Computed example of a mutant assay.
Amino acid sequence: MQVIKSFEEWLETIENQRKLLLFVKTDHCSVCDGLLPKVVALEEEYPIPFYKVNVAEVPEIAGQLSLFTAPVVLLFHEGKEYARFARFIQMQELKRRLGEIR
């Protein structure tokens, strides 16, 4: 899973990737820390680039993507948001949506 370290890097990534998963976390978030390994494990099953960003380090991304909680998993397809999962994420639903854009 690659790390997004700036808003400019995010803009470049979304412009260059046809599809991707973005895992959004923040500091001191036990739900984020518990969910991250589960999402990382999906990376082997799906041929989609996986990225993560810490909104405490890149706060602009939270405003631009209208993120009000963490964790959030966003799927993008053709440069547009395809699916959004927030806070308590059901892995089966995430897998289903990943399969749709595979």
Rank of each mutant, 00 (worst) to 15 (best):
S66H: 14
C29F: 08
E93M: 01
V39L: 06
H28G: 02
Q17A: 12
P47C: 00
F23W: 03
L20T: 05
R96S: 14
E93C: 00
N54D: 15
E100I: 01
S6E: 07
E100H: 02
E15M: 14
L67S: 12
K52I: 02
R96H: 09
F88R: 04
L67R: 13
L21V: 15
R102P: 00
A86Q: 11
L74S: 10
I4D: 10
L74R: 10
F88L: 02
R84Y: 03
I4C: 10
V73P: 01
F7M: 13
T26L: 04
Q90T: 00
N16K: 15
F68D: 11
V40C: 01
A56E: 07
R87M: 04
Q2W: 05
F7H: 14
L74V: 14
L22C: 11
L11M: 15
F23Y: 14
P71L: 01
L42M: 11
F85S: 00
N54E: 04
K80Y: 04
Q90E: 04
T13C: 10
E44N: 09
G34M: 09
Y46L: 05
A70N: 12
V31K: 15
L11V: 14
F85N: 05
A70D: 11
I48E: 06
E81W: 04
H77E: 11
V58R: 02
L22R: 08
R102E: 10
R97N: 05
V58F: 08
P47Y: 01
Q17D: 09
H28C: 07
T69L: 08
V3C: 00
V24H: 08
V58K: 06
L35E: 11
H28M: 11
R97K: 13
T69F: 05
Y82P: 06
K95N: 04
M91V: 06
V72T: 15
L75D: 02
P47V: 00
F23C: 03
E9N: 13
H77S: 07
E44T: 07
K80D: 07
L67N: 13
Y82S: 04
K80Q: 12
E100V: 02
G79L: 08
F50Q: 03
K52S: 10
L74P: 08
M91T: 01
A62Y: 14
R18L: 03
C29R: 12
F68V: 15
F85K: 04
T13Y: 06
V55Y: 10
Y46H: 06
G79P: 01
E100A: 07
P37G: 14
V72K: 07
F85R: 01
V55Q: 11
K80E: 14
E57D: 09
E12P: 08
G99N: 04
L94T: 01
K5C: 00
Q64M: 15
I101D: 01
Y51V: 11
L98I: 03
G99P: 06
